[in-house]
């Protein structure tokens, strides 16, 4: 799907997300300042920076939780500033959260099913009437949910409340749930937080797998250098809300500004 317009004359993929001169201020604090980010189709981009650099704020800007004070945000060529989070999700941006936010009392199955809301035809009336169309649609959804759960090795937890899953599985379930909204762009907010080295390796494989299987773009916010350097072909570095570097992992690693931001002078 994305591969059709994969390349243009400059050898880069078509623009999916475009942030132009985005600034957001909270009172006197400028959390993100004049940020320009461009993400192409089927691209895996890393967004890194020290604590408080404004990485999660960027996510909240893109997903409509905050509105930028200045600047504009375009997705697939259309302005999305001012839209509600659910409308932005409808356009094809899905996210996970830094501190996992599953639906704790719903089962693993229902967590993913709830994310099918955007793609169902039935509403209140059909759910009450329970006609043939409704039953067929529900069965179709069940098949799709179980397929996704099985791909991500969560099928055996189908009826377990999400809150009682082990930590690593909760992270994975959150990614599956985001994928169930059928996004074009997946935003992952510190997916490796709290994971041990083995889990991190699994996570890297998982992210690569998602990128290849679903042919979507991924924007990854991460603290863990091993993970970011391992999978991203392009990395953007933020410090104090300002972009200080951008490039391949090697370029970023060698950039004196980045070293200074992380280690101090």
């Amino acid at each position: 799907m994305a591969s059709q317009n994969e390349t243009n004359s400059r050898g880069m993929s078509a623009t999916l997300l475009n942030l132009e001169h985005c600034t957001i201020r909270f009172g006197g604090l400028t959390a993100v300042s004049d940020l320009n980010v461009r993400i192409g189709e089927n691209e895996l981009v890393g967004l890194i920076g020290p604590n408080g650099a404004g990485k999660t704020t960027v996510f909240n800007l893109v997903t409509g939780v905050y509105e930028p004070t200045e600047g504009r945000i375009q997705f697939s060529g259309e302005d999305i500033v001012g839209e509600a989070p659910f409308e932005i999700t409808k356009r094809g941006i899905a996210r996970t959260f830094q501190n996992i936010r599953l639906f704790p009392s719903l089962s693993v199955y229902d967590n993913v099913r709830a994310a099918f809301r955007l793609h169902i035809k039935h509403g209140v009336v059909q759910a009450m009437w329970r006609g043939g169309g409704f039953v067929a649609e529900e069965q179709g959804i069940e098949g799709q949910v179980m397929e996704m759960l099985d791909i991500f090795k969560l099928g055996k937890f189908r009826d377990v409340p999400a809150k009682s899953l082990p930590y690593g599985d909760q992270r994975r379930l959150e990614i599956v749930r985001a994928l169930a909204t059928r996004p074009k762009l997946l935003l992952l907010d510190e997916p490796a937080a709290g994971m041990n080295p083995t889990e991190k390796v699994d996570l890297m494989k998982l992210i690569r797998f998602i990128e290849e299987k679903y042919r979507i773009s991924v924007l990854l916010v991460e603290h863990d250098m091993q993970v970011v350097m391992g999978i991203c072909r392009r990395i953007i570095v933020l410090d104090h809300g300002v972009q200080i570097a951008e490039g391949t992992p090697e370029q970023v690693r060698a950039n004196p500004k980045v070293i200074e931001a992380y280690l101090g002078q």
């Binding site: 989070p85 999700t89 899905a94 936010r101 719903l106 099913r113 994310a115 809301r117 169902i120």
Partner: peptide, 21 residues
Amino acid sequence: STYGRGFIAVQDDEVAAEAMG
């Protein structure tokens, strides 16, 4: 129903529900 799971999703976590469309 899939539609109705949204009610419980709203109760469980409004921010996440909104982010799931």
